[in-house]
Write a protein that binds this DNA or RNA. Structure first.
Length: 553
RNA sequence: GGGCCCGUGGCUUAGCCUGGACAGAGCGCCGGGCUUCUAACCCGGAUGUCGGGGGUUCAAAUCCCCCCGGGCCCGCCA
């Protein structure tokens, strides 16, 4: 309804002004929507904005298609306030399962995220990628796109060669240790040894040549080491409510000849250069650095395989979205540029800035990081304390289940609420805060609503709101589909996080000031319907954020 | 050195793309509210040169330029 009214108003303003940009904005406290079009017209018409607004308001108010929308000019502003029918119809939609889902589209979207090198466990930097990516995928799905998530597995880079070399040298470690932790130990030890004795580097080079040539034993060793690590990573991802639809192995593109074919096509580009290496001269396109694709020993670098991957990926979807750290900005832009030169589809790239520790940036190689597993364990521990304190009535298993959900909610929300371009310093105090601007706060609002609905028993849905708290809440509920739309259009999952908070906030205020169960019919039924609508909206919203909508906590 | 990003109350942050009505929140601080639908809550209060300067505009946190501070990138790594 909100989106319909917005589009209706935009068209009406365009028609009444002879095609001016409607300049619709959020009306905030003043109205549901507002327009500043009178300012824009003032210059052209050489009249004062309030005068124009006044006249325009008069014309708009007479339009039959805007029946039910109150139009008024407040000084130079045009304010539009939607009538009660708007709220009633919005609530009718809001109580239905799947509320907020936009009409299905045919477009297929592939969201690639996380794709961390399998040389150790995910740390708090990686999971920013994971959480942004997974939330984005959920948003796209909710916005009607056919969506698939992919993890691009680097199983043949230098770092993996070091891992494989280490596994060979140290015997693979204790099988009781989680795969990603086990691999990290080999990787860290191998790096230490390589730093001490640089001559050993030639052994790494040889491994990389062997794997590129498809030498079976080396290939098998790389795969095995990567699989061990990936098993651990998948476990961590599952703990965060993340699963990928597909894992795409980098080496497959070498083995199936795709990388070779990419290089063949590259040769035909005017940007193609060959000396000891194969590279592209992208200077005419604004990149002064060489874009190297093949080393002097004939092995390909990551960039070549990445081109092959994206070309393959583009065959299976209409749109690609990659979630990458800000350190990949240059290489990402070069990739997009090259794909364009080849006549291929470039991906949209969502970059996020780094997460660092108070003592500096993280490093897997140096073993300097806070692992996602540690974070989850720590937050879950705190959640257990909280649940134990509040819910003595529940059994231990039930309390642990709640604590687990609360922990994931806290972590996911903390990460997704910050816009991606903001660099973050990881902060334990903030991670362990379950108050207002947190995932648990949202879950709490949902649980409160569920509790009311459960105690209420069956009731007949009915509509009509007059109390300011009711109206404010109903209006926020009505906005949900437009928030999904906006988050999808802008690839900005944090917009959804902000919405969830505003919704929960308004509900808690409503909860405090407006009695539901104790109110008299017909208010009781109307308010119960509103609570149902809010609960359903918040549930859909939380689901899209990858957070459990708990019925009790 | 060049490129990209960030700089909003003590701390964290929304708003910036698409300029417009008093810059929203959270933490912390001060004060209030649990015989009443779950107090992970609610209500009230103090705290802001929107990094600095210039420009564009009727109007700038928002657009442009310069400067300062921080992060990232500039590899035959990924």
């Amino acid at each position: 309804m909100y989106r319909e009214n917005r589009d209706l108003l935009a068209r009406a303003i365009r028609e009444e002004t002879g095609g001016a940009d409607p300049l619709l904005t959020d009306g905030e406290a003043h109205a549901d929507l507002a327009s500043t079009v009178a300012f824009a017209l003032a210059k052209k018409e050489r009249r004062r904005p309030p005068e124009i607004a006044q006249e325009l308001a008069g014309r708009l108010a007479k339009r039959p298609d805007l029946m039910g929308i109150r139009v008024e000019a407040t000084g130079p502003y045009l304010n539009f306030t939607f009538g009660s029918e708007y709220l009633d119809r919005s609530l009718q939609a809001a109580v239905k399962p799947g509320y907020g889902s936009l009409p299905r589209r045919e477009e297929r979207v592939v969201v690639e995220h996380t794709s961390a090198n399998p040389n150790g466990p995910l740390h708090v930097g990686h999971i920013r990628n994971t959480i942004i990516g997974d939330t984005l995928a959920r948003v796209m799905k909710k916005a009607g796109y056919r969506t698939e998530t992919q993890y691009y597995v680097n199983d043949m880079g230098r770092q993996i060669a070091i891992v494989s070399w280490g596994v060979d040298r140290y015997g693979g470690g204790d099988p009781a240790v989680k795969g990603d932790d086990r691999i990290a130990r080999q990787y860290i030890a191998a790096n230490r040894e390589l730093e001490a004795d640089p001559a050993l580097t030639s052994e790494i080079d040889r491994l990389m040549q062997q794997v590129e040539a498809g030498e079976p034993e080396t290939v098998a060793k790389f795969r095995s080491a990567v699989s061990i690590c990936l098993d651990g990573i998948k476990k961590t991802l599952a703990d965060l409510h993340v699963s990928h639809d597909r894992f795409v192995w980098e080496s497959d593109f070498v083995r199936n000849g795709d990388v070779g074919r990419v290089l063949d096509r590259i040769r035909l580009l005017p940007e193609y250069r060959r000396d000891e290496t194969v590279w592209l001269d992208l200077a005419p396109h604004g990149f002064d650095k060489r874009y190297i694709l093949q080393r002097s020993d004939g092995t390909t670098v990551y960039a070549a395989r990445d081109l092959a991957y994206h070309i393959w990926k583009a065959r299976h979807c209409d749109r690609m979205i990659d979630v990458l750290g800000a350190d990949h900005k240059l290489i990402g832009a070069q990739l997009q540029c090259t794909l364009r030169l080849m006549g291929e589809t470039p991906p949209s790239i969502v970059h996020f800035e780094f997460v660092s520790l108070p003592e500096g940036s993280m490093s897997t190689r140096a073993g300097k990081f806070v692992s996602a597993d540690d974070l989850i364990a720590e937050v879950e521990g705190k959640a257990r304390e909280e649940v134990a304190r509040r819910r003595e009535d529940l059994g231990e298993a039930e309390r642990h289940a709640i604590a687990r959900s609360v922990a994931v909610a806290a972590i996911r929300y903390d990460t997704v609420k910050v816009s991606p371009e903001k660099a973050m310093v990881f902060d334990w105090r903030q991670a362990l805060d379950f108050e207002r601007q947190s995932g648990p706060y949202l879950q709490y609002a949902h649980a409160r609503a569920c509790s009311i609905l459960e105690k209420a028993g069956p009731f007949t849905g009915s509509f009509g709101y007059s109390d300011p708290h009711e109206i404010a809440l109903a209006k926020m509920i009505a906005r949900f589909p437009s928030v999904i739309e906006q988050a999808a259009d802008q690839l900005a999952p944090h917009l959804l996080a902000a919405y969830a908070h505003r919704l929960a906030d308004l509900f808690n205020t409503f909860y405090q000031h407006v009695p539901v169960l104790k109110s008299e019919s017909p208010s009781r039924e109307r308010r119960l319907t509103l609570v149902r609508g809010m609960q359903n909206t918040l549930r859909e919203c939380l689901e899209t954020l990858g957070i459990d909508a708990l019925a009790s906590m």
